[in-house]
Write a protein that binds this DNA or RNA. Structure first.
Length: 728
DNA sequence: GAGTTTGAAACT
DNA sequence: CAGTTTCAAACTC
């Protein structure tokens, strides 16, 4: 491989030598050089290897080239596309040229090319400033552009090719109205494209599912998915550098990003258009950047989405890494991968249920058998920590039927083209469902809710009337997710529209109680691993963070958070007459409980108070198990204290840290089981959430190893409320 | 579906 | 920190 590539490279280089001038000329004339195509092809085949070795920057160039090559490939030189591409081509050439000669001229040309107006072709009309804006708003347009009917739907190689050119055109038009229009078109087009590309279909499906209100979200997810495909993530970084170089040191990072995104998007569009066909290049690179930017946006809007996306992202990244390792990846592999991801994919996932992952403490608490199953599937299949939100949130498409069964089944079907991937899919639908549109009737939502809850609590739906969904009374808010359609809340402020309010409120609450949004139930890894009997295992391994304060329910009803979470009561509980089937406060086994319950009923109240102390000792030991945190906490905190919503802002600012992403997933009910580690966290709730997330993403193995509660726990057993470790 | 019960969350 | 109030879920009818 190498040798042939080198030879090709040499040839290409020779050509490139000419490139500077050639490029310059090209820039002057809209007509594209035929050579470029060949070169690009050669480069394409070459892949990154050779060039990159020479320069760091080359990676970018190489990547671009590959992209460009594709484009050229697909598009005829005569077409306008080239004009837009010229800039790109130039850049690619530049990369090579830089390597060889690093001529300033080239850099200058490159800058020009990059400039919005740079694309000499027809597209390049816009002033740079607008382009930047464009880039910022980005992906949407790009994609929309592709989808937009205005452009030639009939692509030669694929619709997307044209799209790239179109994008440029679109970029010109930037006006918001245009965007709106484009969005509409885009959505419509996606469906059309679906036939052409599985990817697109998948994505479109996800859209249909509704998770994403805005196309941007979907795109973000797309980006994520694509990201998974990334051949070399390293390239993205290198790209960033390259852009800077090309653009000029003076340019700020933000600025640099814009052009990058644009180019990338263009490329991506082209690539995406025919994933199967085009896959050879690494569209992923671009995607990463895009995805990140997009994600941020999307994330803000829906915590859940973020989490899921992040989780997926990780997953994708992992998978991608595997695939990427192979220099020239076969399209087939990628495609297969994509398919796998697809179900997870942001689009599908996010669309349906929001963030299971995020901070669904409550969710975490209540894990139904289904949930657990789902989780298991996820873990097993992907090994990824995709939070499976239990509740099948009704998909918009489905209509109200949503019922859990439907949602699950339908989602699988709809979303996944690949049935094999089904396990993944299941999770996805649930999560996405939560997000759904508000269109659903509240009443129906309640009914559904009850049904779902009974079976699985995956999606939180609230019925708040006075709290405006800005207090912990609201399950959605408490879970760190935005309210969605199924919610029958009144005067709800827990919506993306009121993001600021939500965030500020969360901060206030956290200031009061840092652990307020931490998962309430901490589960040990043991529980997580086990598929079968959640209840049986969970009680032992998992415990409610703060413990309950039940007096009349005997911890036998859902009024009891411990019971609701499927965990036994612990020392932390102040409950009276505890009969928790999952484990009494005193530590008696569930079975015993039943037998004893009757006798104890009266006495227990007293006993507990008295016994509690006694049991405390024993439990304390247990707590050690539960509180593995001591060791772990550090890592989680380090990652992020983030809570879903709070994190969002962060994510928006900068790429969502993995932890962030993971958080979502981990926090999710199901995730908690998976990760079982949470027990470790117990002592410090915040950590818990964080830790969990961390586990999911990066730390899992470590945590798993650590998770053993054995670590000395510092938690104060007596006080239900753990002193919030001051955050960070 | 309406009303009651319950316990967490919020407030004082 | 303790007591009270508020709130929404859970539950019952």
């Amino acid at each position: 491989m190498d040798t042939p590539e080198k030879t090709q490279i040499t040839t290409s280089l020779s050509k490139f030598e000419d490139s500077p001038i050639f490029n310059y000329i090209n820039s002057l004339s809209p007509i594209k050089p035929v050579k470029s195509v060949h070169i690009t092809q050669a480069l394409h085949s070459l892949s990154f290897g050779s060039l990159p070795s020479i320069f760091t920057s080359p990676h970018l160039s190489s990547n671009k080239e590959s992209r460009f090559l594709r484009r050229h490939h697909y598009s005829d030189p005569s077409k306008s596309e080239f004009s837009s591409e010229n800039g790109n081509k130039v850049s690619s050439d530049e990369g090579t040229a830089l390597d060889v000669a690093q001529s300033y001229d080239n850099s200058a040309e490159l800058q020009e090319n990059f400039n919005p107006g740079a694309s000499i072709g027809e597209v390049s009309v816009e002033p740079p400033s607008e382009d930047l804006r464009f880039a910022v708003e980005l992906p949407r347009r790009l994609k929309y552009g592709c989808g937009s009917p205005e452009y030639d739907p009939t692509p030669r190689c694929g619709p997307q090719i044209d799209c790239s050119s179109e994008l440029a055109g679109i970029s010109r038009k930037c006006s918001p109205e245009r965007e709106m229009h484009l969005q509409r078109v885009y959505q419509a087009e996606q469906r059309k494209e679906a036939t052409d590309c599985d990817w697109e279909s998948l994505i479109s499906d996800s859209n249909d599912l509704l998770i994403f209100n805005s196309p941007t979200d979907t795109e973000a997810f797309k980006g994520l998915m694509q990201k998974s495909l990334d051949l070399g993530t390293s390239f993205s970084a290198s790209l960033g550098e390259v852009h800077k170089v090309q653009i000029g040191p003076s340019t700020q990072p933000g600025e640099t990003i814009v052009p990058k995104e644009i180019n990338q998007k263009r490329d991506n569009l082209a690539d995406n258009g025919n994933p199967n066909e085009c896959t050879t290049s690494n569209p992923n690179e671009d995607v990463d950047n895009e995805a990140v930017s997009i994600l941020h946006r999307g994330i803000r809007r829906r915590c859940l989405d973020f989490e899921t996306a992040g989780a997926r992202r990780k997953n994708l990244g992992d998978s991608s890494n595997l695939t990427t390792s192979v220099g020239g990846q076969s399209d087939e592999k990628i495609a297969s991968i994509d398919k796998r991801f697809v179900p997870f994919k942001p689009g599908s996932d996010s669309s349906r249920c929001v963030l299971p992952g995020i901070g669904l403490h409550l969710n975490a608490l209540a894990i139904t058998s289904k949930d657990s199953k789902n989780v298991k599937h996820e873990t097993l299949s992907s090994g990824i920590s995709v939070p499976s939100t239990v509740a099948p949130c009704p998909s918009q498409n489905s209509g109200q039927e949503l019922n859990e069964s439907l949602s699950l089944a339908s989602t699988d079907i709809d979303i996944d083209p690949t049935e094999n991937e089904a396990p993944f899919v299941e999770d996805v639908p649930q999560a996405s469902a939560c997000l759904v549109t508000e269109e659903f009737n509240h009443s129906s939502a309640k009914k559904k809710r009850r049904k779902l809850e009974g079976e699985s609590e995956a999606c939180k739906r609230c019925n708040c009337k006075k709290s405006k969904c800005l207090k912990l009374y609201c399950e959605c808010f408490a879970a760190g997710v935005y309210c969605i359609e199924p919610c029958s809340c009144q005067e709800c402020f827990n919506k993306p529209i009121h993001e600021d309010t939500v965030l500020s409120t969360r901060k206030q609450i956290e200031s009061r109680n840092p652990l307020a949004f931490a998962p309430k139930v901490i589960r040990s890894s043991e529980t997580a691993t086990e598929v079968g009997d959640e209840s049986s295992k969970t009680p032992a391994s998992a415990r409610h963070k703060r413990g309950c304060n039940c007096k009349k329910s005997s911890c036998l009803k859902k009024y009891c958070e411990c019971y609701q979470g499927g965990v036994g009561c612990s020392i932390n509980c102040r409950c009276e007459g505890c009969k928790n089937a999952f484990g009494r406060k005193d530590g008696s086994a569930p079975a015993e409980i039943e037998a004893e319950a009757e006798t104890e009923d009266e006495t227990e109240g007293h006993e507990k108070s008295g016994v509690d102390k006694i049991s405390q000792k024993t439990e304390i030991q247990n707590n050690e198990e539960q509180n593995p945190n001591s060791a772990l906490p550090m890592t989680p905190l380090a990652f992020c204290r983030a809570r879903p919503l709070l994190q969002l802002p962060f994510s928006s600012k900068s790429k969502p840290p993995r932890s962030f992403l993971s958080i979502g997933s981990s926090s999710g009910l199901y995730t908690s089981q998976k990760y079982g580690k949470p027990n470790i966290l117990r002592p410090q709730p915040k950590f818990e959430t964080q830790v969990q997330t961390i586990h999911d993403d990066d730390m899992p193995e470590i945590l798993r190893g650590n998770y053993s509660p054995s670590n000395g726990i510092k938690t104060s057993p007596n006080s239900k409320r753990v002193s919030p470790p001051h955050s960070i």
